[in-house]
Nucleic acid binder design. Structure first.
Lengths: 349, 349
DNA sequence: TTGTATGCGTTATCAA
DNA sequence: TTGATAACGCATACAA
């Protein structure tokens, strides 16, 4: 039936105007008389023309309307993390006014994928802090594409969106100290990608920035607190970590600092399992300030990080760079939020 | 410093070969002598040329390497659903060999976004079953873009990935009947987008296919079972629904069929709250077969749907259509998985 | 194995 | 307000 898709020239011919006029009707960049517009629109619908071919338009304008989002992990697990989900949400929102959408990309460069080298990107947002980040960064910069990094250090001249992880975690620790807690344990996020859960020793290398910074914050207040690293930010991981800590020989801690809300939720479950009441026997703090589905009636004492804001900021940074402006790094601050999972330390026996 | 990005012609000139030869070096479509290749590669790196401009290449080849994924909801909430997450995972995987990536798109057409009309898509995958689907579908088809629909009815000639929802849910119901359950209640997914939770009456219109089909399956076995619709597939929604059902005047049901695992998890929590033991006092079935974080020690009796497979199938359908083949609709089957949340009905008083 | 010629469909610029 | 012209950067058919 249709041998070839209609082009804007076809439409122009049909409407009896020049191609450039027809183009302007669709782009709206220049005033066009109503009569002309009508003729063009009619011709278009007669020919089944649905608008300029994005490929040609993007070759001409140099813009594709696509922002790449690069994850350092399996995409499936990326969205298991509520914080990342919120970030994506903010990013989507901030990027929409640009007329841009998000293209999901993986760090891997598995040969086949579209990847950073071949996708028609206007800009890229890198998420994470692994070593692979470096490589992705080089690829993107070699192409001359504006790039923003969230939660990772990419060097001086790359705009960065970060969090006051250390200071925030220290704030939670000070909160506990203020409640009289002395014996405190820490449940951390993974120490490095591909990490198995286990105790964190002084000799344990921690390559993930977020984990290291939050741990440092906790240790600023409790230098000798034992720490157990989870294999991911999940309730079940928190449960396992909680069990490990609560079944450890020696006196039980009276409080546990978890590096994420999901981990904290798991710790609470481990406490219940061990017959401990939260917060009477054990105080628990989280990190992130997300809504943990099914945690009611507990309300975590936690640090609320502006996850969606982070995404939005990244989007704005991208917008700024595309507008020719210099994007600046932003450091966000977490807000302490008291819940019902922390209380005055029980009297020592 | 750099006034203009180098093009393949620049590289060719620098290397002393023709543009087409240089092009071939990058595409690998035609044999090139080693000496020539070297010269071209060297020239490229000397000029900082990182490969063909994807925009130009895609105009020429007609391929952008981008598959749009259209959600009918806020992107943030889309990824809250583990089933969707898994689907995305499968889709990502199946689409990678095409050299394609996924562009996140929303149904909304909020004016600003890139949207279906302006994105350089090779194909589109529509997820969901709302009325908005229709509109998106028309947009895409008008552009002549191959499209696949997951979990929705898009008409005869659009390949579709579906599930045997009704039959599978009936299977769960028969399982309960086999255990002697007579008084059974149902917790459904939302009846329509934007739905508030509440009882499902005979007069309640159900516009979401999945909800309607699963409900029909349950009613095939228990025609008179009461049903309460949640506002979404979340544990907390299941909790609310469970409370509503268990606090209803009259005899308590001995079993509850939930239309998703998350809802089932909430129902279990409601049962615990009400002092009922699962499965001794109340049997609960789920749907999806996902891993519910934090549900241990319960293992849901549920129907395992091949979520990742669904995504993969959509990806393959897309690949087929791009390859010029006719894509066929696929109907997946759920597998019954017995857990420890169902048991013989308690003796009737 | 390499080079020549052509056009993919659009839009920016400028002149009318 | 409209039209003519010239790229945008590349990949392919075909000739050499």
């Amino acid at each position: 039936m249709s041998t070839r898709r209609a082009t804007i020239s076809d439409v122009a011919r049909e409407a009896g105007v020049s191609p450039s006029t027809a183009s302007v009707v669709f782009s709206g960049k220049t005033p066009v008389s109503d009569a002309t517009r009508r003729r063009v629109v009619d011709a278009a619908s007669a020919l089944g023309y649905t608008g300029p071919d994005p490929r040609a338009a993007s070759l001409r304008t140099g813009r594709s309307g696509i922002v790449g989002v690069v994850f350092e992990e399996h995409l499936g697990t990326a969205f298991l993390d509520p914080v990342k989900t919120l970030m994506m949400d903010g990013l989507t929102e901030a990027v929409a006014p640009l007329g841009a959408g998000l293209l999901l990309l993986r760090d891997q460069e598995t040969g086949q994928g579209p990847s950073l080298t071949t996708a028609p990107l206007d800009a890229a947002v890198l998420i994470g802090c692994s070593g692979l980040l470096r490589e992705s960064l080089n690829t993107v910069r070699a192409r001359g594409i504006p790039v923003v990094v969230i939660e990772g250090d990419a060097g001086e001249d790359v705009p960065r969106i970060e969090l006051d992880n250390r200071e925030a975690q220290a704030q939670a620790a000070r909160h506990l100290r203020g409640l009289g807690h002395v014996d405190v344990a820490i449940v951390t996020l993974p120490a490095r990608t591909g990490w198995q859960r286990g105790w964190v020793l002084d000799s344990t290398p921690i390559t993930i920035d977020v984990t290291r910074e939050r741990l440092a914050g906790a240790r600023d207040v409790y230098p000798d607190a034992v720490a157990y690293a989870a294999a991911g930010s999940f309730i079940d991981e928190g449960l396992a970590a909680g069990r490990a800590i609560l079944s450890r020989p020696g006196p039980l801690p009276t409080a546990i600092l978890a590096q994420s809300d999901l981990l904290a939720a798991g710790v609470i479950r481990a406490a219940e399992e061990a017959g401990l009441r939260v917060p009477e026997d054990l105080s628990v703090t989280g990190f992130d300030g997300i809504v943990v589905d099914g945690l009611a009636p507990y309300e975590l004492t936690t640090l609320v990080q502006p996850a969606a804001e982070k995404g939005r900021a990244a989007g704005h940074a991208v917008a700024a760079m595309l507008g020719g402006a210099e994007a600046v790094s932003i450091r966000f601050t977490c807000a302490f939020r008291g819940g019902n999972t922390t209380a005055v330390a029980p009297a020592r026996e």
